[in-house]
Computed example of a mutant assay.
Amino acid sequence: MSIEVSNITKIYGQQKALNDVSFKINNPEIVGFLGPNGAGKSTMMKILTTYLEASEGKANVNSYDVLNSKKEVQKSVGYLPEDNSLYTDLYVKEYLGFNANVYGVKKERIQDVIALTGLTPEAHKKIGQLSKGYRQRVGLANALLHNPEVLILDEPTTGLDPNQLVDIRRLIRTIGKEKTVFLSTHIMQEVEAMCDRVIIINKGEVVADKYLEDLRKGQEQVVVVEFDYRVEDAFLLKLPKVKSVTNPHGFIYEITFSTSEDMRSHVFDFAHDNKLKILQLNQKNASLESLFRELTS
């Protein structure tokens, strides 16, 4: 068991940030910790990385108790905090070299994590010269330096542009094939793009713990498509298994299908047959969105 949380409660003054939280995470697994702002996500992650102590309950990471075996937990966990504070005056290799000395890992590992996180083109620059996306990569590279078994990522995609989002998602999926990744977010699309499982927290309490595959079974599916030209809803309603079509704004359409089958290929064929260009084409899990709204409203 990579992470085991049992009845964790955290109290700040008179406020309960976490209330009797329990869950277990296996290895390898990518688990999304989903919840609205202020739900207790960052507090839970700081407890798991030993930055905070729980008021009540127990937590183990890689079989080490987070209260009584802090050094062992820190050695076996890679942590990317939400603010991702970096030494902006240092060069990328210089920063990673400094942390390699702290961890006591070989210098060769620096080049390995630079290649893994796609930092090679920017490795000669100072961190202060990097874009937000590349700074996130530096944070991930640093979290991976000591080859930890568990990665804990707090809002890893905050502030990234669409291209950076795709790159970071792909990187996290790759890492998650071999390691346990526990990442927090308040964005459902991030969970759908990266995770195998979702734990939803609201007001400090776990309100759902589901595998996405189970959520998708027998559920509706929403495809979000943006064309380069306006299309009448009536034409989109002719697509197979369509339940409804909405046009929230511009040339963007949300098409609800009464099936869990991936219907994006049908939308693509529709665009091709009607000489339309697709500017974006995404799939949303309608059941996850409904579940989140129901449990956190």
Rank of each mutant, 00 (worst) to 15 (best):
H266W: 01
I252R: 10
K284A: 05
A234V: 14
M263K: 07
E226R: 02
M263F: 11
Q219A: 08
D233V: 07
V224C: 06
E220W: 13
S265P: 09
E289S: 08
H266P: 01
D233T: 06
L239A: 05
L279N: 04
Q219Y: 13
S287L: 14
E220G: 14
V245S: 05
I255P: 07
I255L: 08
S287C: 11
F268E: 13
L281S: 03
S287H: 15
F270M: 07
Q219V: 09
S287W: 11
L279K: 05
K284Y: 00
D228V: 07
E261G: 12
K275I: 12
F251R: 10
L288V: 09
F251S: 08
V225G: 02
H266E: 06
F270N: 04
P248Q: 03
Y253Q: 02
T246D: 02
F268Y: 11
L237T: 03
V267A: 05
V245C: 01
F257K: 02
Q283H: 10
D269W: 11
D273W: 07
A234C: 00
E226A: 04
P248N: 09
V223L: 10
T246S: 07
K275E: 01
K243I: 10
L281R: 02
K275C: 10
F270G: 04
F227L: 05
L276K: 02
L239T: 04
E289F: 00
V267T: 04
V267S: 00
T256V: 13
N274Y: 13
F251H: 11
V224A: 03
S258M: 09
D269K: 14
L288P: 09
I255N: 00
V267P: 02
S260N: 15
N285I: 12
K238M: 06
E220S: 13
N282F: 05
S244G: 14
A234H: 01
A271H: 12
R264P: 12
S244F: 07
P240S: 01
Y229Q: 15
L237A: 00
E254M: 03
F270E: 05
A234L: 09
P240N: 01
P248K: 02
K243Y: 12
I278A: 06
V267N: 02
Y229I: 12
A286H: 13
D269V: 11
T246K: 06
L237P: 01
V223F: 00
I278R: 05
L237C: 07
K277M: 13
K238A: 04
S290H: 13
L276P: 07
Y229P: 00
D233A: 07
V245N: 03
K243G: 12
K284F: 03
T256N: 09
E254R: 00
E289K: 06
